[in-house]
Amino acid sequence: MSWLPRLWKVFFLFSLVLLGIGLWWAFFNTPPDYQQGYSVRIMFMHVPAAWMAFWIYFLGGILSLGFILTRRGILSIITFALMPIGLVFAAICIVTGSLWGKPMWGTWWVWDARLTSTFILFLSYLAYVILWRAWGSNPKRDLICASFTLLSAINLPIVKFSVEWWYTLHQPSGLFTQGKVDDAFRFPLAIFLLFFASFSITIFLMRFQHLMEKEKKTMRRT
């Protein structure tokens, strides 16, 4: 595991470069949208954060299923290393969405299907972290957390398809569908998505290193 610190440092430096390019592009090279003006810049934070929150939980669901089937402790550790990262992205998604909603929709929040299911996703992340901490080193902890993640992952298709299944204030997806979003906005969006992904890998590797060291110490004691 001696390669771990070197690897997360590389990802961290890569993240800093991407953040620099993204911020420069968003603030100095992005034209105002014909309807939204410069508030369109919020999209570069909101949309990648929403994607990260969604896909991290999806990955957590797959890892939890893997744990339930194989009972390999490493899968549980990987899930716990990931989940707090998703929690932060879910919070960023909700807060930036609210800050975008106020000038565009005239309201900070509505209980429509997309916003409510995203809020439930945030609560699921929070519940997972609380569950993990509450059960401490109890041997049942991993199975309980994995079962909870798998069950609450039912919310993911609702988050994804809520804008198609119900009438919502939130616009339908399709950012990368040709003609829906201008290329002037797609490039910074892709840069911030890469930044969030690279930053997530950095934090994941840091947390994984910490959790593995902790696990080794516990093994030595017992």
């Binding site: 919020i42 909101h46 707090p84 932060v88 960023i92 800050l99 975008w100 930053f199 947390r207």
Partner: peptide, 30 residues
């Protein structure tokens, strides 16, 4: 409020949250 305020608040919240996550993970590692 002008759009700039909403934009700055969004970027400020997002980047501060990520910075806190980084610091928290760093402290745990030390």
């Amino acid at each position: 409020m002008s759009y700039t305020v909403y934009v700055l608040l969004s970027y400020g919240f997002a980047l501060c949250s990520l910075a806190l996550l980084l610091v928290y993970s760093w402290i745990k590692l030390k």
